[in-house]
């Protein structure tokens, strides 16, 4: 029963948040549309990261590659494919790419996987940069892209979809298998978990929404530039949000994204150095003192409260 009630609370909270995001433009004006878009984007990206890396413990430091591939797909097919095809196609390209690299990449664990995913994202970045240079396209302009509101609404849908997906996976048998892989991979296979298949499925699933997010963001910025959409800073930010919010629970990425978006709204334009310093300080504090993130603190507080 408590499970059902907490599910209800989660979905209700999510619906309220989404509803608020949808009406932010008419309530507060255009500036807040941009903030809401930013927030929804980071939720979608961090939630997708948590789905694989948070549950399995395979820490990816290259998730920008999915975002970049989605953006590239949309940029290349702009005015060729309708957007309702191009954006999901971006997700599909990212997922197929994840599927292709999954088997070799997931053979390594720990720091090797971290470095490998980072390396792959850089490799793809420079490969596409070279390809674009060869094609004589230093950047692509996307004239006639949809309005900020339209992008925001779609982004909110992705943020909600990624949150619901994380919640469902976490409480499913599949999710239990992913957590067992984190707990001890050898034991996981010993009790009958098809470890390789689960890892490949989880990794592929976690790439789809970021690909669509990248496609949307290319439309949003109305031009496409390789170094921008494959910027490793995006990967770092995802991991930071996941660490601060907590990544083994669908509430974590939302909290982490909210925290960092708020902090950057507060400081980024006025005191960017202070923002970076605080970011580093918070990251260290959470890693050392609260490894389960804000959601872990929430749980602890909740438990103490109910006893």
């Amino acid at each position: 029963m408590t499970v059902l009630r907490s599910d209800l609370a989660f979905f209700a909270g999510l619906a309220i948040l989404a509803g608020f995001g949808l009406s932010v433009g008419s309530l507060f004006g255009t500036y807040w549309v941009i903030v809401a878009l930013n927030f929804a984007m980071w939720i979608a990206l961090t939630q997708s990261w948590a789905l694989f890396s948070g549950l399995t413990g395979y820490i990816s430091l290259g998730n920008v590659v999915f975002y970049g591939l989605g953006a590239y797909t949309v940029a290349v097919s702009f005015k060729v494919l309708p957007l309702w095809v191009a954006v999901p196609m971006g997700g599909l390209v990212a997922a197929v790419f994840a599927l292709m690299i999954a088997v070799p990449a997931l053979r390594v664990r720990g720091p090797y996987f971290v470095i490998l995913t980072f390396g792959i994202s850089e490799l793809v970045k420079y490969s596409i940069l070279n390809l674009e240079t060869y094609l004589g396209k230093s950047s692509r302009l996307l004239f006639g892209a949809p309005s900020a509101e339209a992008v925001l609404y779609t982004m909110i849908a992705l943020a909600v979809a990624s949150s619901v997906l994380m919640r469902l996976v976490k409480s499913s048998t599949f999710g239990r298998g992913l957590v067992a892989i984190q707990g001890d991979e050898t034991s996981a296979e010993t009790v009958g978990i098809p470890v390789t298949r689960f890892k490949v499925m989880g990794f592929t699933l976690s790439a789809f929404i970021p690909g669509m997010v990248g496609g949307l963001m290319a439309l949003r910025s109305t031009y496409f530039e390789v170094l921008q959409v494959f910027n490793p800073f995006i990967s770092f930010t995802i991991v930071t949000m996941a660490i601060i919010g907590g990544s083994n629970d669908a509430r974590g990425p939302i909290l982490g994204a909210a925290f960092l978006v708020f902090l950057s709204e507060l400081l980024w334009s006025s005191a960017p150095r202070l923002y970076m310093i605080l970011l580093g300080a918070f990251l260290i504090a959470f890693v050392l003192l609260a490894p389960s993130g804000l959601v872990g603190l929430l749980r602890k507080y909740g438990e103490g409260h109910s006893k």
Binding site: A180, S187, T190, G192, I193, N248
Partner: peptide
Amino acid sequence: PDQICHAGIARTFQIVRPFARM
């Protein structure tokens, strides 16, 4: 190993390997 488990063989580990975080 997962197929062998499903065939009906289970093993324990001399150096114990519980699932962490469970």
